[in-house]
Design a protein around this nucleic acid. Structure first.
Ligand SMILES: [Mn+2]
Ligand SMILES: [Mn+2]
Ligand SMILES: [Zn+2]
Ligand SMILES: [Zn+2]
Lengths: 140, 140
DNA sequence: AATCTTCTTTAGAATTATTCTAAACTGTTG
DNA sequence: CAACAGTTTAGAATAATTCTAAAGAAGATT
């Protein structure tokens, strides 16, 4: 298990270097929190609270910087569901979301389950970057 | 055309009364700007600027209040595409959007052109409120 | 290892979008 | 025309995010 952690860390170093980002203590810690197990959806504030709780000193500005750098590097993506917060998603593969309005939680919908058909031609001179589907749900 | 305007105004009064909203000068002016011709996508700031430009005195707080009241009344809806602004849509029928990332513009996609299939069952105890599709496009 | 260079972190100020407060004002009803 | 309830608004307050500039850490160079 020490091996596994070491391996994961080494792996993260690679990913950062590949993105031309120096593997600093802060970035490694945040990357660990983000990618250590399974996919996650987080806000900057939530991740900052988590890091702080874990005893790691990292400023909120750095959390924001890091989230944006990771997004630019393609290892995170932003999800727009609620105008008041920005969510970051560690799953960058094509997939969609349930958004639970009561609790402001995101739930993944695997990329191969939903199919969107009948898309009209995008306006002349533009290309489609991504098709986002948000299924808004609330307590029945 | 004086008739048409009068008719439209009378119509707006009805809609407001139906929503238990007093037809005040401010609300009528904003409703006019919003619903007078065709469907629109606006932000609070943009609508406020428009009202001000048209020589109508209406505070930004009132614009926000009104947009939210109209949304609660079901004659407007919010569209979440960009975490930095909230867009309000005068088209409340089921339909979808292109979002032009370069210019932050929304373009309607008629409700009957796109079909979403393969939606998984929503989590136990929840029901689907709406399925939003945003097709993000940018300069080719 | 010491040095140099460049990138990174950060505290705190600043910005932006939005909401709140409380007092003045207006539409409605009897 | 009261009288009441609903509405508007200036300005303060909040919340999320970004900016600034100075101090700190990484990587390259000697
Ligand atoms: Mn906000
Ligand atoms: Mn914001
Ligand atoms: Zn996801
Ligand atoms: Zn629309």
């Amino acid at each position: 298990m020490a091996e596994k952690a070491a391996h994961a860390s080494a792996d993260l170093c690679q990913r950062l270097r590949a993105a031309a980002l120096r593997p600093t203590r802060q970035r490694l810690v945040l990357a660990e929190l983000l990618f250590a197990r399974g996919h996650r959806h987080v806000t900057a504030e939530a991740l900052h609270a988590e890091a702080t709780r874990a005893g790691i000193g990292v400023s909120l500005a750095t959390v924001y910087n890091t989230l944006h750098q990771f997004t630019a590097a393609g290892i995170l993506r932003q999800v727009a569901v609620d105008a008041t917060r920005t969510y970051f998603d560690t799953n960058v593969d094509a997939h969609q979301h349930f958004y639970v309005e009561d609790s402001s939680m995101l739930i993944d919908i695997p990329g191969d389950s939903i199919a969107v058909s009948g898309l009209p031609q995008p306006p002349k001179g533009t290309r489609i970057d991504r098709v986002d589907v948000v299924v808004r749900i609330s307590k029945a």
